[in-house]
Write a protein that binds this DNA or RNA. Structure first.
Lengths: 321, 321
DNA sequence: AAGAATTGTGTAAGTACTTACGTAATTATA
DNA sequence: TATAATTACGTAAGTACTTACACAATTCTT
């Protein structure tokens, strides 16, 4: 029974690892059977040093093989101990230690060349029998991964799913309490709830909607996890304010979807300019707004601003069309 | 610059390893980005325990995943410390420790299921874009490796090459010295050179060839590395004797090719039966003869045998049709 | 020309496996 | 029913990487 096989692409990395280990062990067995004191993992470093005319430095080997430099150091230490390579200081740059093959090393290479040939033939024959051009496959996969690595591929997919799971709702009186609660949650964490906050948060209909603005809510599943308000400043200018996302839902694209919807609705209402006030220390928020095209317009302390916290804040602006 | 790429199938294992590492690291990054305390390497063990209804033992997990049991123990120790699984002693067999998922573990699974889904979609999409059915490829390669593993594929190829490199030569007077030297080499190592040995080794023409037998030599490159004699016992019976391969060439199929040629030539001369005397302690030799169909016919000490060493020896026989 | 930044190497610690070996419990065997 | 063999688990040591950090030499910047 082989559980990993059953999991398909879910455990593809584990399965590839298992296969790779099998290849590595096979190589090791072959050397052992021949009575040669050599390991497959030394091959790339040793062969690189052998083929290059000019002695290489540690970091040159590291970048050529795309492995870490401590890995190179470890391997070269072993090869040096075996007497297969030697090292000397570079004459120009005293930081650099250059590595070259020894006479004993060359002797071993001559002995190993036909063996390596057999390695190559045996593996290429195996892949040929399996009807697989493995070199081409790896090349093509590596190319795709150079474009975007596995991690970010997965992360983007997760974000997309989370984004789709967020539903944006219009203001209704029964959600009023969430507008207050969600904003209190973060205000209390980072700043204090000031007098003007309370006034707006307690009376959104009167303070925002009746003034020509609007309020949005974000729902994930059954839970209201975020909110934002858009205030009307004048016919062409609106302000995004009172954006709040509950802690548990942060990083789940709630703010992104709220912002996107807020911009779209403001545009519908005839806005030509959107502004917002935030705090330079709230990096996630500032970066989010930036991805929508908001630019910082004011970083100096607003002396006599309406809110105490504005003394540390910045203003951002987005021109529509 | 990517040296490993240039090496083709010679460094395919290193290249596969690099690719696998990339996948593993990608998974790790994704969990980290989500703020989840979970690692890709835990997945197979954790998921197996989760999916199975009955709690599993260490060795059941080990064989299901085809990894060593200490690897399972290590992973389960971590998962236990994280509170995701728990263990209890089996009621029937007190050696067995059974592993089951905890409430906390189930909670995490529920959270992770959509994430794992994203893992799967992201990787399968990647392979699809690359035009590769990776699951099928790995399946097919694993199938071939189950038949014959990488190590033995390589070793067989090396042996074949070595076998082809051995050239069998007929007796000529100028090689006479090798017949003596090669036999002295091993006789002195394992036994003593006895009186009868000397007589035959010094006069092969008279003692072997003129009696209806023959002598063969094996050459690798410029060097004579092995020899054997075939003595005529009667019209239908020949004896393989004085087989010697120099130490440096041992394991290189010299004995095999000499034996094969000896059998073929004896057959040409009309032999119906081949016998030989060897020592049970020379395992490599006995096994070699066995692969040609020789059977042990006599294991008891030959009291009063011609050679002192025969007291520890065995006799083998091969019937030729 | 002084200070900052970068580069090359080395060391330490951590991770995720492996093989080898030890011990206790169970099962098979004579 | 002793004894041997097998099984299940655990521990130790080794391997082959990694990341993080330290330090010296060199190069860049002002």
């Amino acid at each position: 029974m082989d559980f990993i096989k059953e999991l398909g692409y879910l455990a593809i990395a584990s399965r590839m690892k298992r296969l790779t280990d099998r290849f590595m062990r096979g190589g090791s067995q072959a050397y052992k059977a021949l009575g040669i004191d050599f390991e497959p993992r030394w091959f790339t470093v040793f062969y690189l040093i052998y083929t290059q005319d000019a002695p290489l430095s540690i970091s040159e080997i590291s970048s050529s093989l795309k492995i870490s430099h401590p890995a190179v150091i470890q391997t070269t230490q072993i090869l040096t101990k075996k007497g297969l390579i030697k090292s000397f200081q570079d004459s120009q740059d005293r930081r650099i230690r250059r590595l070259a093959i020894t006479g004993k090393g060359k002797e071993l290479v001559n002995f190993l060349i036909p063996v390596w040939n057999d390695f190559e033939t045996a593996t290429s024959e195996l892949f040929e029998k399996a009807g697989v051009d493995m070199l081409d496959i790896i090349k093509s996969i590596e190319l795709f991964l150079d474009e975007e690595d596995v991690g970010s591929r997965i992360i983007n997919r997760i974000k997309q799913r989370q984004y789709n799971a967020v539903e944006i709702l219009d203001y209704t009186p029964e959600y009023k309490e969430y507008f207050q609660k969600l904003n209190y949650e973060w205000l209390e964490k980072y700043f204090q709830v000031e007098k003007l906050d309370k006034k707006i948060l307690l009376n959104p209909e009167e303070q925002i909607i009746q003034q020509g603005g609007f309020v949005l809510f974000a729902r994930m599943g059954e839970k209201v996890v975020g909110t934002t308000a858009v205030l009307k400043r004048d016919e062409k200018t609106y302000e995004i304010a009172k954006m709040a996302v509950t802690e548990k839902a942060q990083g789940m694209q709630v703010g992104r979807k709220l912002t996107k919807e807020a911009i779209a609705r403001a545009e519908e209402k005839g806005a030509k300019k959107l502004i917002l006030k935030t705090d330079n220390r709230l990096r996630a928020a500032v970066n989010l707004y930036r991805t929508f095209g908001f630019k910082v317009t004011q970083t100096k302390p607003t002396i006599g601003g309406k809110y105490e916290r504005e003394r540390f804040g910045i203003q951002m602006k987005l021109d529509l069309i």
